[in-house]
């Protein structure tokens, strides 16, 4: 007893020290983590609120000294005047950087991106939900082969589809239309949607399926009345993934779109970056505009996204 006293006391002191050390280590690690993730973004946002004059200061102003919304204003009320060599010079005599008249294309591009993304989401749901139900709950010959085939299509690299897609889309006369994007984006989104939903349906008890059918539901009614309402988390995940994938897609859009009729936000934003005369503060404002929807989705729907991303990870 008496020997245990001091030993216990030093143990307690060591425990306390250990606890503080752990807290300190967690703090430092968290700070590094937050810095790593946010620093580049903060810099992007910060410089989008700077004027061309301020953005070119050395060393850079980490926080804008004279914050301005002129870059965003230009996007929402794009200058209608024609841009010539002279007006370029006039825009910002200090540096030659300017806000391009093509800024007016940003909002229509955003609308294009939205139309494409929403269409892709709807088609994904229509196509993937019944398929996932069949794969998860109906025993049929060819089921394993179907799952294997769908998973295989998931690993086809998009760049390998570019050449045939281009010829295919051109022969259909669909070049420079939103339809070309909607169709081809299905290739990169549908397999994953089927995968997430199948996984989720498999986790719901088979007896629910049996109960519904004995209760008088056809297969389709079972799906609509029982599985769809119970699978909202997975359906939300599918909506988010399909939306993000379409909103962010660049390669295929670069190939198939040629005019602002069909160009999506990433294409317009990218077109600015290759023009050296355009002010980087304006480009950054366009970038901020492009990341707002995804960032909001990530922060608001973190739970759904994480469960979708990690579905099947442990099994593998």
């Amino acid at each position: 007893m008496s020997a245990a006293g001091p030993a216990g006391a030093t143990g307690h002191v060591a425990g306390e020290r250990h606890r503080r050390l752990r807290i300190a280590a967690l703090w430092i690690a968290s700070l590094i983590f937050v810095g790593y993730v946010t620093a580049p973004l903060v810099w992007l946002v910060s410089s989008s609120f700077q004027s061309e004059r301020e953005i070119t200061s050395k060393p850079p102003h980490w926080i804008p000294h004279e914050p301005t919304v002129q870059n965003f204003a230009a996007i929402f009320a794009a200058p209608k005047k024609d841009v010539t060599y002279e007006t370029r010079r006039a825009a910002d005599p200090a540096s030659g950087g300017f806000i391009p008249s093509t800024a007016a294309n940003l909002l229509p591009a955003m609308a294009n991106s939205l139309i494409v993304a929403i269409s892709v989401v709807i088609l994904n749901l229509l196509v993937a939900i019944p398929a996932a139900y069949a794969l998860a709950k109906i025993r049929f010959r060819g089921r394993d082969a179907s799952i294997y085939a769908i998973l295989t299509t998931r690993v086809i690299p998009d760049i390998a589809l570019v050449v045939p897609f281009f010829l295919f889309i051109r022969n259909l006369g669909l070049l420079d239309t939103l339809a070309s994007l909607i169709i081809t984006y299905l290739a990169v989104t549908v397999p994953f949607s089927v995968f997430i939903l199948t996984n989720y349906f498999e986790g719901l008890p088979d007896e629910l399926d049996k109960a519904a059918r004995v209760d008088g539901c056809s297969r389709l009614q079972t799906l609509l009345h029982v599985y769809v309402p119970l699978s909202l988390p997975a359906i939300v995940a599918v909506i988010l993934f399909a939306f993000l994938a379409s909103w962010n897609e660049f390669l295929l859009a670069l190939m198939f779109t040629q005019t602002p009729n069909s160009q999506t936000l990433p294409i317009i934003v990218a077109s600015f970056t290759s023009d050296f005369t355009i002010s980087f503060s304006f480009i950054n404002a366009a970038g901020v505009l492009a990341i707002i929807p995804p960032v909001l989705i990530a922060l608001l729907f973190e739970r759904y996204l994480v469960s979708g991303l990690t579905a099947g990870a442990v099994k593998g």
Partner: peptide, 30 residues
Amino acid sequence: LQALLLVPWAIPYVANGLMWKWIYDSSYGA
């Protein structure tokens, strides 16, 4: 922190690209 972690994953590669292009800028970059 976990919610924050998803932000880089969610943003478009194009935005990521222009962000780093500006960071790496030889004249005015961060």
